[in-house]
Design a protein around this nucleic acid. Structure first.
Length: 167
DNA sequence: GCCAACGTTGGC
DNA sequence: GCCAACGTTGGC
């Protein structure tokens, strides 16, 4: 038991990908705000992934429904998951009448700006890289807004960002 | 704007 | 518990 909890603490950081529509909240908004609470996630699987996040985990920032769809930069997890206040705000579009104050249904992490890529790593770029075939974002029909990424995939994307910037 | 793919809801 | 209907996501 004690051994297991120690192992948990020293495990390597996780990597993630988070989607956002630039017309709602894009990398430019995060660069301006420096950090933000990632509120409004209303999907249980995506919520559960956020609950697995640790401070310092790195996040690929993805623009969906954009002129240029793809990964546009890197962010860091600034706080572990906490209660998403919008679930209790009847004025919010994310209000959830079924959420209980003593047992919140929805969580959010704080995310901090790290960098914006010089050029977008587009969906096509991602799809044409054989090292990324297993990325969840590339799987047919995937709509999850928060997904885990392997350390290898993360490194490949960072390398891609450098190479597309030189084109 | 289209539409495939998916998650959720609610009747039974 | 099943599943049709519905709403949403997101690439194109």
């Amino acid at each position: 038991m004690a051994k297991n909890s120690i192992v948990q603490k020293i495990e390597t950081p996780h990597h993630w990908l988070m989607k956002s529509e630039p017309s709602v909240y894009g990398i430019a908004d995060l660069a301006r705000d420096r950090h933000t609470l990632w509120e409004g996630v209303r999907n249980y699987q995506a919520r559960n992934f956020m609950r697995e996040m640790s401070v310092g985990d790195r996040v690929l920032f993805y623009h969906s429904n954009a002129d240029v769809v793809g990964i546009v930069g890197v962010a860091r997890v600034r706080s572990a998951a906490k209660e998403d206040p919008t679930q209790f705000d009847s004025q919010s579009e994310y209000f959830d009448a079924g959420a209980k104050k003593d047992d919140p249904r929805w969580s959010a992490v704080e995310v901090e700006f790290e960098s914006k890529f010089a050029a977008v790593v587009t969906l096509d770029d991602l799809r044409s890289d054989r090292a990324l075939v297993s990325m969840m974002i590339l799987r047919k029909g995937n709509r999850l807004s928060v997904t885990p990424v392997t350390a290898g995939e993360f490194a490949v994307v960072i390398a891609l960002a450098r190479s597309v910037a030189k084109k």
